[in-house]
């Protein structure tokens, strides 16, 4: 555990909680892609199956349980409790175009051809692209609520901090995991355009809206 890893986890946690609170307080999930949230629930479920097979630490177990619990709570709020506010017409990204290739890639490129390892690999690949339906939705509507941009910033920052964590671990622990690193780079790159808009607009007090 190093400072990048810890702040990465906390940034991830902050993102998840910001989104839950935003939906809960406003009683609305307008502008939020339910598809991205379903993908994140799948990501956590397939990655954290090792909760059932191995114990690493209290920290590890509690974070995993919180992430999974919050992911399903978010999906529940979007598709059940505040379903009437869900903007399904704008959430039109075809997720099968992500899940199918990612599933194939996980079977082909992994560290070990075993059930849990393939699911872990699948979750790493899927996470790297799971935000695309949300970004697609924003590009379609041309705008995002400020609180939604805070959520996206924390979510993007988390993987960027993990990249620093992996650089740290490479130098100080001679450890690296090529699958996680490549997927993490892809994931972070997908946020770059958004980071630019966040810094140049949202942090200067303007709403994030895209030119028509």
């Amino acid at each position: 555990m190093n400072v990048f890893r810890l702040t990465g986890d906390l940034s991830h946690l902050a993102a998840i909680i910001i989104l839950l609170l935003k939906i809960w307080k406003s009683r609305s999930c307008a502008g939020i892609s339910g598809k991205s949230q379903i993908l994140f629930a799948i990501v956590f479920t397939t990655r954290y199956l090792d909760l059932l097979t191995s114990f690493i630490s209290i920290y590890n177990t509690s974070m995993k349980v919180i992430y999974i619990g919050c992911a399903y709570a978010t999906v529940y709020l979007i598709y059940m409790k505040f379903r009437a506010t869900y903007d399904g017409n704008h959430d039109s990204f075809r997720v099968e175009f992500l899940v199918v290739p990612v599933g194939g890639l996980a079977v082909l490129v992994n560290h070990d051809f075993s059930f849990l390892e393939i699911l872990w690999t699948f979750s790493i690949y899927l996470e790297s692209v799971a935000i695309l339906p949300q970004l697609f939705m924003i590009s379609k509507t041309g705008e995002a609520e400020t609180i939604t941009t805070h959520y996206l910033f924390c979510l993007g920052l988390y993987r960027a901090l993990y990249l620093l964590n992996w650089i740290w671990r490479f130098y100080f622990e001679s450890f690296f995991d090529m699958i996680a690193i490549v997927a993490g780079v892809v994931q972070t790159v997908l946020y770059c355009d958004f980071f630019y808009l966040y810094i140049t607009k949202v942090l200067k007090g303007k709403k994030l809206s895209l030119p028509a």
């Binding site: 995993k64 560290h111 450890f175 996680a180």
Partner: peptide, 10 residues
């Protein structure tokens, strides 16, 4: 297996 070490990450 070296990659098992990574499983402490979230």
């Amino acid at each position: 297996k070296g990659f098992d070490k990574n499983k402490d990450e979230l």
